[in-house]
């Protein structure tokens, strides 16, 4: 039973790893680099601070 579990673990790892690679590839080709890296630190803070005043 434990040996079977061990093989199942390998299987799950490989499937999920491949899925992540696939999704990574898909996202990187469908979206431009500028959109993907558009997050900026403190943006929401600045907005909420202004809102309060």
């Amino acid at each position: 039973m434990w040996v079977a579990l061990s093989y199942a673990c390998w299987g799950i790892s490989i499937v999920l790893a491949l899925w992540m690679l696939y999704d990574w590839f898909k996202i990187d080709t469908n979206y431009s680099e500028d959109v993907l890296t558009s997050s900026r630190e403190g943006e929401l803070e600045a907005a909420s601070e202004k809102h309060r005043i």
Binding site: Y7, W10, S13, L16, M20
Partner: peptide, 29 residues
Amino acid sequence: TIVAKAGVEGLTHNSFIAATIVVLAWLNY
């Protein structure tokens, strides 16, 4: 821990390590 519990000759921890790290990375992803 799993290997110690199983007590099966020749069972190594590698598959469980791989599954832990990959499954959790997937969850985080």
